[in-house]
Amino acid sequence: MSSRKKVLLKNKNSDYKLKVIILGDSGVGKTSLMNQYVNKKFSASYKATIGADFLTKEVLVDDRLVTMQIWDTAGQERFQSLGVAFYRGADCCVLVYDVNNQKSFETLDSWRDEFLIQASPRDADSFPFVVIGNKIDVDDGKRQVPQKRAMAFCQSKGNLPYFETSAKEAINVEQAFEVIARHALAQEEAEEYTGDFGASTIVDIGADADRDGCAC
């Protein structure tokens, strides 16, 4: 898994390509968050995501140029079972819920578990998650999940960074993704230093040559 990532995501300018996965219930605003962050656009008419797609964005993190590849996924749980195809090599996972939808908050835990099972990062405990409560633009009367409760949840899961955003009104989106990028970069670097230099490195070289050499 990491072998592929190195080949794919790292380039010789020692910049990084980071892979971020956005998960959460259907309709919490995953696609909107991604598009607001990458394209600075909001549309009320996104269709329900089917399958998966990604966008990329280049950002500076502590003077390092990193390319984030942000994966947007279908929100209905059953469609996650094919997620292995794109969970692999993730550097950060963003868990999104709708602050006006209690249910979408309650499922965060299972999204997290499912991700850990499918992506099986080397160190599940230290794998970075960021939690986002979206749709704070909707009037207060409809809010179902108090901020306190969300923060308590994040604290209990190992002090996960927590943001409340509005993809519609571009509130806090930039800030959230800045932190996401930072955590993803740290994860990527940690992966790099925690070994993985054995036989797999040799495979990497072979795979790399093979891949680029393919003229077919």
Binding site: R4, I50, G51, A52, L82, F86, D210, R211, C214, C216
Partner: peptide, 23 residues
């Protein structure tokens, strides 16, 4: 030949046709 290429590209799960097939 194409299949071999897709295999090399780790794409023989054909997941990228998921949407087309689903709906």
């Amino acid at each position: 030949v194409l299949w071999k290429h897709l295999e090399k590209a780790e794409s023989t799960n054909f997941f990228f046709f998921f949407r087309m097939i689903l709906v």
